[in-house]
Amino acid sequence: MKIRIKFAKYGSMKFIGHLDMMRFFQKAIRRAGIDIRYSEGFSPHQIMSFAAPLGVGIESLGEYLDIEVLSMTSTEELVSALNRTMVEGVTILDACILPDTVKNAMASVAAASYQIHLKEGDFCLPDLAGSVVSFYAQEQIPYTKETKKSVIEMDLKQGIYEMQVGETQVLTDIMSAAAAVLITDPTEERATVPCIRMTVDASSSGNIKPTVVFEKFCTFAGCEIPPAAIQVTRLETYTNQAKEGDSRKLVPLLLQER
C-alpha cells in the first residue's frame, strides 16, 4: 500500500540537508513502529521516495514523501504515530493512501510555490507591489545558469507561473514563517510583514530556484538585499494534472488522486 505523507520543516531544522532528512525519516519510521515495506536483497532498505529536495536554509509547509507499508490501521493513526516521534521543527501535516498506479512523489513534482520575506526590516521599495507586477510583466527574464559543467542561457519567465506580493505573519523572535503558521493561535492578532510569493517550475528538468528569481527581481527593482537577509519558505509542492494539449493544471501533491 502506497502512502503519501505531507510535512512541514522549519526553525532549526531548516539547517538539516536533504540526505540527512531522509536518514531522519528512516529512523523516525522505525521509532514509530510503522510496518514499512523493505526492498529485497542482502541489505534491504525501506521503500521511500521524497518529492522535491529542499535547499538548506529554506523552510517549508509543503514537503512530501511516499512510503510503502505492509499494514496500517489508518492514515490518522500513522500521522499521530509519526508526530509522537518528531523533533521540534518537523511536523507531519497529513497523509493519504495512493492508488498503486500513481507515479512516486519525486516523479510527480511539476511546480512549487514559495514565499520570500525579510528577516528584519522591509524591502525599502516605494511600491513593492508595483515593482513585482512590472518585473513579472516582462516578456523575457534572461538568466545565465552556470553549473560545474556548462553555462546555459535561459529564460526564467517560462518557468515562473505566478508572482505577486502578499502579507505573512511573523513571530517576533524566531523569524520562522512556517512556524508562525503552524504554532501560533490563529485567533491571535499578529503583526504581518510584506512578502513576495511565486509559483515556479520544480520539475527535475526545469527546476527554478526562488532565490534566483529574487536576485533578478532585486536587480530589476534596483534594491540591494543580501541573500542572508531573506527567509524563503516553500508553501506547497504541485503536480500537473493537465490532460495532453491542455494548459497547466497544478494540484497539490496530496490532493492528486483524492
Binding site: 532549526s12 531544522m13 539547517f15 538539516i16 540537508g17 540527512d20 529512523k27 523516525a28 521509532r31 538548506v56 516521534t85 523533533v87 521540534e88 521543527g89
Partner: peptide, 10 residues
Amino acid sequence: KPARYIGGEV
C-alpha cells in the same frame, strides 16, 4: 555542517 551546532536531536 551547521547541524553540528543546533542541538535539538531526538
